[in-house]
Design a protein around this nucleic acid. Structure first.
Lengths: 233, 233
DNA sequence: TAGTGGTCTAGACCACTCT
DNA sequence: GAGTGGTCTAGACCACTAC
């Protein structure tokens, strides 16, 4: 005799997923109601609900009240990108991380930054440039702008030893951000910093960050030639 | 008198989030147990559980049995990237989408592809090149490889009018994938296709896809100069 | 071994939306 | 109006893990 284990929401989720993959329920098909599935699987409706809710979050199925649950026609594919600090990226590769502050200036925000970060003209900004290295090789160049008004302590923070990204992560831990990824050509300065030929194709990440509706920082990271950002989904 | 509305898990989630943002519970702090929070909020423990589970999924808090729930020290920042078809990307910009198949060949998989997709040497592969346009301007160039063994119907599919990406999305709707993003320099062929100077910096996305453990397709998309991929988190 | 989160149940009511 | 998912409850037992 089999031990009649209790059905878990994971069992339900996986079985429903299997039927979708095996086209038992093809794309666009209507699934049984939660109550029916609960009866079939011999579990509570709440268990089925949680299973289906997870699949809906993944974009596998679409749910609407009254209409019921359908297999998604165009499953939304989402890749989750972990936004990590340079230190973590470097150490993940079993390399030694090193950081160096290149420049630090208190200045009025330039126009392009004001529109980028949604700041009033002439806002006081802390501008820094920094380099991050992996095993002594250039990893990425950081162009960092911090809104002093949002993080006053940054004015007196020690960025000689602590990278701005890590400092901010501790100072403003829970923020919203907008990221952009693009390719750019190395200008003379980047070529120098990243030890590559001028004109080389470089991968860039730009990030604007807000905390409680207030713009905090803008950063542009330019990676060494050949850098590749990866993800699974 | 206020209408004493029932507390929802969203109320609990938002209030807990507020206390974390306002440093009522600073980073690393131990939160009250689910039972205590349930009593405080006047709701069932299951309601608190769902609220905290969501925050844990977002990486805001860390939960461990017996130890309890703590505010995350290093909140994991995750960006969700929607992987959309070229058609959708183009139409989102209110531009007119056009597709053109450039070449189509049945051939043995080259060595680099076999290692990339984890295929046996000499596997039969359908190789295609295609262009995608937005308002008549080059949007991206697609280099596509399909494992015939995994999707036999692809051999006779009409890729003159249907982009391989869309065809595959319908044929193999629920798959796993690995994506990589990088920058590359335009060679003569890409410069021609994308109407840019040779050597221009271009954004590339590479994707390998599996369905039920079997390699299905590899695609390399090279975008027009100036393309930027965006996301929020 | 005891405390904490993880999950399931059975029932109830609500909210949306199709007809 | 009626059908379906969305959520809450109160209670129970389980599973992991710090002690």
């Amino acid at each position: 005799m089999q031990a009649a284990k209790k059905i878990s929401f994971q069992d339900v989720r996986d079985e429903v997923m299997r039927r979708i993959e095996d086209r038992v329920w093809p794309q666009g098909a209507l699934l049984p109601t939660e109550a029916d599935l609960a009866e079939e699987f011999g579990c509570a409706r709440a268990t089925v609900n949680r299973a289906l809710r997870e699949l809906a979050e993944r974009g596998i199925i679409d749910r609407k009240r009254k209409s019921g649950t359908r297999v998604a026609l165009q499953p939304v594919k989402q890749a989750k990108l972990e936004i990590a600090t340079a230190r973590r990226l470097v150490e993940e590769r079993n390399a030694t991380y090193r950081y160096a502050l290149v420049s630090r200036n208190l200045q009025a925000a330039p126009g392009w930054l004001c529109s980028q970060m949604d700041l009033p003209q002439g806002t006081e900004i802390l501008h820094m440039e920094a380099m991050h290295y992996a095993d002594g090789q250039p990893f990425h160049f950081e162009d960092r702008w911090i809104n002093i008004a949002a993080v006053p302590e940054s004015k007196s923070a020690d960025f000689e030893t602590t990278p701005p990204g890590e400092w901010l992560l501790a100072a403003v831990p829970f923020s919203n951000a907008e990221v952009g990824f693009l390719a750019t050509s190395a200008d003379a300065a980047l070529a120098d910093y990243l030890n590559c030929a001028p004109g080389a194709a470089l991968f860039q990440m730009e990030r604007s960050t807000w905390f409680q509706e207030q713009p905090v920082t803008f950063a542009r990271m330019t990676f060494h030639p050949g850098y590749r950002m990866r993800s699974r989904y």
